[in-house]
Write a protein that binds this DNA or RNA. Structure first.
Lengths: 244, 244
DNA sequence: CGGCTATTTGAATGGCATCAAATTGGGTGG
DNA sequence: CCACCCAATTTGATGCCATTCAAATAGCCG
């Protein structure tokens, strides 16, 4: 296993709380078996109970819900350093499914171990609560996006936000980012049909704002794009650890 | 102050973890000044930083975001026992505003006290993490509702879910519940115009499913309604404490 | 009773979905 | 290396759901 201080989870939690030697050790011991999953095969099924928690080491996954009529809504994408199934474990039953978009590597974490770690190192519990709050803030922004913005602004805003998240872990910049999502994925996350996503992307491209092509999102004019999308670029910033 | 064991927060956390005598004492000591706010005046402003946390004792509030063009999206309603501003405090700046819908009573909780309580009684931290997960699950369900259901089903589903939440704290039943929301509130929470909400409510009424009148939501035919709304009535159930 | 807010209804517009079909491109096996 | 296949992308045509604008009615409070 690589040195923990370079892992995405450590980097993420460090943004909130300066972890002590002992806390890092606890964090390290949480990780059990390393596992890999292939793209497209669900890791967690809606309705499943008592499944384990995973920590995403590499690759992309999405959490989604399926409605009775087969429509799908993607709630969020997870990138390295994110927990998979933490909420499901706490609530004892999964309210959503989780599907790998690319092949992924995860570390298994046992629920009992995690709760034990919280008991022994409370600052870790607070740090995980912080991370959960950050996830919730992203879902909330997503909700507003779907509820109140039209398709063009919504799409631009979503891609900017995804780029900002990826930039935080070194996987993107103002130029753009590598993106394995299809137009079907984009439709399901944006609450649009894939056909309409295609038209939206064409308008954004012809407006000189962004291009999506061959697994690459390119911001052609970053400043015009953030103005158009009403995007707040400071949104995900976390400049200083909160808990000393 | 009333006996803590009858407070909504205690009832809620007890659904997840059996609290010890010592933990109850800590919970009791968290509550500082009791304050009241009048309907319509924001308690927390979008963009504000370093504000305190409140615990809602009575009344209804909503959390919302305002877009640059003035459109509003209500993210969630809070009812007694819910924290206000917990996420904002952890993230150090508020990504949303909070407005009382009715006159409300809150207890002030200092951030430092709460973090201190987590350090001394880790089970409390886990319980609050559980409560936060439950809140996130509700936001996720709301997201799916807006993203993928048409206006009629969306509205029916939302009112059923609100009724279920209220039933958990003794404020509603299969018959219906008292509801201070206007059609503007419903529009802003459902991502619809108030005018269209009116038409939707008429269709639901004429379909014999539910009636909204004079601050009262009445489920005229509960079974037909849950079938129509694709509502899972077990959704918020929490039958047994998870942490012994 | 007057004034305000919330509700209700109508008519016209438009954004997005749906259905259908053509085209592109990557991957695979012969 | 080419032929083929399948998935993803692209474009057109049509219809509907929800918005917007407008105005009337109902209900509540001072």
């Amino acid at each position: 296993m690589t040195d923990i201080e370079t892992t995405p989870l450590f980097r993420k939690l460090s943004a909130f709380v300066s972890l002590s030697e002992a806390e890092v050790t606890v964090l390290k011991e949480l990780r059990q078996r390393r596992r890999t999953f292939t793209a497209g095969r669900d890791l967690i099924h809606q309705g499943q109970s008592d499944q384990d928690i995973y920590l995403l080491d590499s690759g992309w996954v999405c959490s989604y819900k399926i409605l009775p009529d087969g429509l799908r809504q993607i709630v969020d994408f997870q990138i390295p350093g994110d927990f998979l199934g933490l909420r499901s474990a706490l609530l004892q039953t999964s309210d959503h499914s989780v599907e790998p978009i690319t092949d992924i590597e995860v570390s298994e974490v046992f629920v009992a171990d995690l709760l034990g770690a919280f008991a022994r190192t409370p600052r870790l519990a607070t740090a995980v609560l912080w991370a959960a709050s950050r996830d919730e803030a992203m879902v909330v922004e997503h909700l507003v996006n779907i509820g109140r913005r039209d398709a063009d602004v919504r799409t631009a805003h979503f891609l900017l936000e995804l780029g900002a998240r990826l930039a935080l872990v070194g996987l993107g910049s103002k130029e753009g980012f590598a993106c394995p999502l299809t137009q079907y994925h984009l439709g399901d996350v944006l609450g649009l049909s894939a056909v309409h996503v295609n038209r939206v992307l064409r308008r954004l491209r012809e407006g000189g704002m962004l291009t999506v092509h061959k697994g690459q999102v390119t911001f052609d004019n970053y400043d015009r794009l953030i103005a158009f999308a009403e995007f707040d670029p400071t949104y995900l910033d976390q400049e200083r650890p909160f808990l000393k």
